[in-house]
Structure formats: C-alpha cells, structure tokens
Amino acid sequence: MPENAQPRVLISRMSAIGDCILTLPVACAIRDAFPHAYIGWVVEKKAAPMVRGHQALNAVIELDRGWFTSAKGIRTARAALRSHCFEFSIDCQGLTKSALAGRLSGAKTRVGFKGRHGGEISSLLNNTKISPVFKHVTDRSLELLIPLGVHSPKVKWKLPLSATSRHWATRWRRTINTSKLAVLNPGATWESKMWEADRFAATARYLRDQYGYHSIAVWGTDEERRMAEKMVALSDDSMSLAPDTDLHHLGALIESADLFISGDTGPLHMAVAVGTATIGLYGSTRPGDSGPYGQIAIQKEYQRGSRKQRRKADNSAMRKITVDHVCQKIDEIESRRRLNNAA
C-alpha cells in the first residue's frame, strides 16, 4: 500500500497489561507507515488503561472479560466492532478470543500466527498467517505487519500517560530528598515470579550506600502492600512505601525514577516503555520471550513445565538470583552512566 493509503486496521490484543504494553509498538508502526490510517484496538477492560488515549489510535473497543463465553457477549462485541468497518485485523495474541474479535469485526484480511497453540483455534479464524522468526512478544507482533508491507519498523512505545498523572509524579518526586530514585516492585500475578522481600531490602541498602539512591516499594494488592511494608522495615531507612496509585500514576512515578527493578509483571514493561533503566528478574518465564525489551534481564534457573505448572510453582527458580547478581547489574548501569556523563 502507498504511504497515503487509508487502511482501517484493528489490533487485537486483549490482555494482560504487560503484554498489551509490549504490543504498543504495533500501533506506532502502523501509524508511521500509514499516517492517514484508521487504527483501532480491541482490549479487555482490565488492560484498557494502557491502550486508551494512545496517540496512534483512533478507537479503543473495550470488552468485558469472558465476553466470548455467551451469545449476548458475542453479539455485543460484534456490534461494537462492525461499526468501525475494519478492513484488516492483526491478531497479536494468538488466542481463540483475539482471533474471534477479528472475525466478528468483518475484516476481510485477518492476520495471525501460523500453527495451533494448545486448544486454541485462532489459526482457523485468521486467513493470512505468518510463521514468526523472532521469539520476543514485541518482535513477533511486529512481524504480523509484513502483509501490510511494513518491514522491520523502529520500535516505539509512546505509553499513553495522562498529563495529570505526570504532574502528580513530578510533585511527589520533590518529596524525596535525594537526587537518585529507584522503584522496586515485589508484586507479581504468580508466586513463581516473586523475589524475596529481604533481598529487595538488601538491594535498596546497596543502592543507598554505593550510589546515594533512595528506593520506594510499589504495590497494587493488599498482599503486595504487606510485602512492600516488610521490605521497608528491613531496609534500614533506605526505602519507603510508595503511595496508592492507579496504572497511569504508577507509570508516571516509574517514569520519574532513575532505576526500576522487578520480576516479570506489567509494571516492568511499563518501565521499559517510559524509558527508565530497568532490571528484570526471571524464573518461571523466559526473558527472550517477554523480557524487558532492550534492557537488563537476570535469569539463573528456569522453572520448567507447562504454563499451568509454572504458574502454580513456588519461587525456587527466582531464589537462584542473589542480591550480588542484582548489584553487579546495578554497577554496570552506574558505570555506563559515568562514562556517558564524561563523554
């Protein structure tokens, strides 16, 4: 298609928060290739804040979780999608529900991954199929744009954070009386993705003693807050508890920081998207598949098994990552910064 073409394109990536963030470069790449395109994104409501308001998008179609399990939900989704008259759908998730959304949209060209995954029937619902070369979620998703004539686009995120949240983060940052701020995130949806509270606390002490950082522990659920409070209690005043935040304010807070350390969860990918130096800790997932894109990832052991088995496992693989391992990566980041400042 010529650059002045006006294709109507639907991106289908419905969940989870981190994976939706990892897919944002698809929207940016389509917009860069076709400035006059009409671009929509169908997403489930929990992950919608990371998509809603993105500057590359014309429309965000939000669906309830489980929408595809009832006739009423399917009819509602079809009506919402058909009103946009999409010509192309890009199934970045490879699940039955994400491919079904493309089919319901009425798009004639429905691009997805080749092959079947588990019990999913996405390959039957999509009619243009790509065998991806890359493993990382972001790179694989961008390969789906080849049928539109988009090859090897520049990776951009442009995370849609509100001006209000950024203004709040700027004001809050001034309450921390140090020049360097680190954000440490203990939370994760799987226990097998979680690092130990005492190790986070030891890392915070190292950051303070070696480089003058103050650290904050972020949290989302009540359980995560309890772990964050334990980290603060063990930190010898090198860390404090972050305020309660929604996703936009959390993203703005991370954007204001100099360093972010976390297991494999949504805020980790948020940190990469806003350009904060990031160290990702991996045990039950592989950084080559969904790691902090272009940033540092640490994995010392992989928790093998099916997705269900890895989800239910303990965090023994994460415990193979020591405080020394993390501090070595901190030293590398700080050394690189010194060289850049001296140049």
Rank of each mutant, 00 (worst) to 15 (best):
T189K: 04
A56V: 05
T164C: 03
F113H: 09
P25S: 00
A271N: 09
L142D: 12
A48N: 02
V274M: 11
P147C: 10
M231S: 04
E87M: 07
H248P: 06
V60K: 00
H151D: 04
N341S: 15
T109P: 00
F134S: 15
G66V: 11
G294S: 09
L63H: 01
T285H: 06
Y302I: 10
Y211Q: 01
A242K: 07
T285Y: 07
R171L: 14
N127K: 03
E334D: 07
W172D: 02
H54A: 04
S12H: 07
A233P: 01
V51A: 02
P2F: 00
R336Y: 06
A47D: 01
S240F: 00
R65D: 06
G115E: 06
S141M: 05
V26E: 05
S240T: 15
K97N: 10
L184D: 04
C20F: 04
G288Q: 14
K193R: 14
D91L: 10
H54L: 04
D19Q: 11
V42K: 04
I61M: 08
K156M: 05
R52N: 05
C327R: 11
T189L: 05
G280H: 11
R208P: 05
T138R: 07
K129S: 11
P160Y: 03
R65G: 12
T164H: 08
V155F: 02
Q93Y: 06
I61L: 12
R140I: 13
E44M: 12
L181Y: 03
K230M: 13
G73S: 06
V323I: 12
E332M: 13
D19L: 10
S179Q: 14
F34V: 08
S89Q: 01
R166E: 14
L124Y: 15
E255H: 09
I176V: 15
A252S: 15
G291T: 09
F88V: 13
R304H: 15
M1A: 14
D246W: 01
H167I: 02
D236H: 07
V133C: 08
F88D: 01
L253W: 07
S131E: 15
W219K: 00
V232G: 09
A273N: 01
H269D: 07
L207G: 11
H36D: 14
T203E: 03
G112C: 08
A242G: 15
K308T: 09
A228F: 12
A271V: 09
M239W: 06
R171Y: 00
L247C: 05
G212D: 06
N340S: 15
L159N: 02
S240D: 12
Y38T: 13
A99H: 10
M239K: 03
I254F: 12
K158F: 03
S98R: 06
K320M: 13
F113N: 05
L184M: 14
L22R: 07
I261M: 10
A77H: 04
A271R: 07
I17Q: 09
A80H: 00
T276D: 11
L95W: 08
S284Q: 02
G291M: 11
A233C: 03
K158M: 03
G106P: 12
P153G: 02
